[in-house]
Design a protein around this nucleic acid. Structure first.
Lengths: 164, 164
DNA sequence: GATTAATTGTTCCAAATGGAACAATTAATC
DNA sequence: GATTAATTGTTCCATTTGGAACAATTAATC
């Protein structure tokens, strides 16, 4: 965000009250609340991942992409994650060294190399996913099952639309 | 934020198709989609703000907070935005120099200083808000007015709950 | 009321970040 | 097919970032 991040993790009453007021008053309520939610969902998990596995966000995103798509180039990952290519390059090297992925030159195009996740990488991913799920549940349990379905439908629609 | 960020801004068909697949396949769908949405809403606007007004995210967040709450300390802003205090400190100094806010020592507590937005700061905020709104509309127009109300209700519930 | 603990804002510094230039390769254009 | 343009992954470098230590001040504890 670096982010449009607003946490209410404050021990001081004043801020909690005032923060709530911001949610009601501000001019771009939906953007603001979605951004806030995203950070509440994701930030603490990334802090865990950093602490326990030594991966930063870019490295985990690389792992995540390769967990779902068998073979990708660095450029693919850059496109998908919106991160600059040099960051991906760094992440790839670190993850190669740690044995979480492999790289082989593309026989069809000498410029690029094909990345794949290793077994160790898959294992790591398997350890990390539950943390996101636990966190998701902590936040989304505020909704009943009907509301969860509503949310699912709305998100599908929003994400599916190809706005600019 | 650095971020759990996945954009579909790719000129290549392959990635767009594969990206869509990730949304369906992955294990933490709601977290993933909310995070994706947040970035789509916010990232391009922050890029504009950076380019046109020279403010980074932290600086704008400071402005945003002071636009809605008359008087805050640096620590207040740190609590509300979840950013480290030294970042806030830097942002405050830059914004002071630019004349977007004022600072006066708190007579009741010698440790802290009270920040307020200036007229110039309010003007700047007034110029920036519409950009968020335009972007919000670009994304949320995928929903009809009923669905918008649903979303509003769900967000209120999610944000209002005080999960850990 | 003296002593210890906690809080605020700042400075220092090592690490992360991302833009720009670059060589290697492939695609496009003439 | 030669020449120009575009693409990929990397290196370089200036800027940003955030943790830790710090002085100044206030609160808590004895």
């Amino acid at each position: 965000m670096p982010e449009h991040r607003l946490t209410s993790v404050s021990t001081r009453n004043r801020n909690e009250r005032e923060l709530a007021a911001i949610f009601e008053r501000n001019e771009v309520r939906d953007t603001f609340r979605i951004s806030y939610l995203a950070n509440r969902l994701v930030v603490p998990v990334y802090e865990d991942i950093k602490r326990e596995f030594g991966l930063n966000r870019g490295e985990y995103l690389l792992l995540f992409c390769l967990s779902h798509i068998e073979e990708l180039t660095s450029q693919d990952v850059a496109d998908m994650t919106g991160r600059p290519r040099n960051s991906i390059s760094r992440a790839v090297h670190r993850m190669l060294e740690d044995g979480y992925l492999t790289r082989s030159p593309d026989p069809a195009d000498g410029r690029q190399a094909l990345l794949r996740i290793t077994y160790e990488g898959q294992e790591l991913h398997r350890q990390i996913v539950p943390r996101f799920l636990v966190r998701e549940e902590q936040i989304l349990c505020a909704l009943d099952s009907d509301e969860r379905r509503q949310l699912d439908r709305l998100l599908a629609k929003l994400v599916g639309s190809n706005a600019p």
